[in-house]
Design a protein around this nucleic acid. Structure first.
Lengths: 195, 195
DNA sequence: TGTACATCAGTGAACGCGCGTTCACTGATGTAC
DNA sequence: TGTACATCAGTGAACGCGCGTTCACTGATGTAC
């Protein structure tokens, strides 16, 4: 009996990370409403009370993966910030990174920005991240207001694409092309508005 | 007994409209997750099965109020389109109307644009509305791509404000000031990008 | 004007569901000596 | 190296909840004659 297949031992061993990974998979597959502690446990192949050894509540798990997502987004953005570039290119590069992230993790980006869920810890992390992003873009453009407007534009573009309201061509060519098209879009909007 | 207060008669009489109104009130108060057929019935002071005389399912009710909202947004936007104005003013006017609507009906705008709910009827109405909006702005700017980008910018701005990610000053002065501030923001982004 | 009847709108009990959370438990691991 | 014990991670039964939906019903309205 013990040799026909890798039966999971009594102790999972890495349940914490496994919970987060499965939670994010569910988030992307079924959206926030489908993300219950029970569904996560089910997907991790563990009893539905096991998660309570790692998270005090559903909300705690959500907060954790939200923070995780914010950290990842922030890392990608700061990587984009590191590469030197002239003003219009700089903001287009930010927009590209942001859009690519949003299109790759739609559920996560909605969890992060959505108002349905506002945990203190995740919110202050988000606030820090967006503030530094806005400041960075604003500085790159030498115009704080334009930084805000640019963030709004890329966020709105991401949301409209994810919600299937506008179509930048994913059907023909896959989603990887979208950021570059969006870049052109934003460039047309931005390049002559730089002070 | 019958004279101590206006006891509702057995037949409500206007339950259809009452359901829609109460559903929208719940949507704004508690968001989409709180909007159940039972909560709507409760709020309308009616048994929890009464709504089934007017809607076949929860989804049917949601579709109906989504369409209602789209029609209202569309009416306000076409009113803005009617007033003649020069190019930059024109788009700022659109943005103002759009933002004002979004800030006044946050739950509704999220229902309309959110991907969680995609009914065919409401979606095609939304598609028509956004297409004509994009076309209108694009034409006003003599640049279709800028029309799309402008819609994205105002939608993103609305979402970021509603999700408390950015703060355009609602705390000091109430939300009615936001659209005008946002107008300044968008103007700074747009006015020199007109072809 | 009055009576019979069809139709309609609202009722309340009941169903099965998935959920978050609690509880006492048990199997496994690691540490002290 | 071996034994006792504390600690930890996962279990499964159970709770109460709100939900969507169904069903047979009943009170009210309107229509035909």
């Amino acid at each position: 009996m013990s040799e026909n297949g890798p039966e999971r031992p009594y102790h999972h061993g890495q349940l914490g990370p496994a919970l987060r990974a499965n939670a994010r998979a569910i988030l992307e597959q079924d959206g926030l409403p489908g993300l219950s502690l029970r569904s996560v446990a089910r997907r991790a192949g563990v009893s539905h009370t096991a998660p309570y050894r790692h998270y005090a509540s559903r909300e705690a798990l959500l907060a954790d993966i939200a923070c995780e997502g914010i950290a990842e987004l922030r890392a990608e953005l700061s990587q984009a910030a590191a590469a030197p570039a002239e003003k219009p290119e700089r903001i287009v590069r930010f927009a590209t990174v942001y859009l690519r992230f949003a299109l790759r993790h739609p559920g996560l980006i909605r969890l992060i920005f959505g108002a349905e869920f506002h945990n203190r810890a995740s919110f202050s992390a988000l606030s820090d991240a967006t503030n530094s992003l806005v400041a960075d873009i604003g500085q790159a453009l030498a115009d704080p207001a334009a930084g805000l407007a640019a963030l709004a534009a890329m966020h709105g573009l991401a949301m409209l694409i994810l919600d299937n309201v506008i179509d930048l061509g994913q059907h023909q060519s896959g989603w990887d092309v979208i950021p570059s098209r969006a870049g052109i879009l934003l460039r047309s909007l931005l390049e002559s508005s730089v002070v």
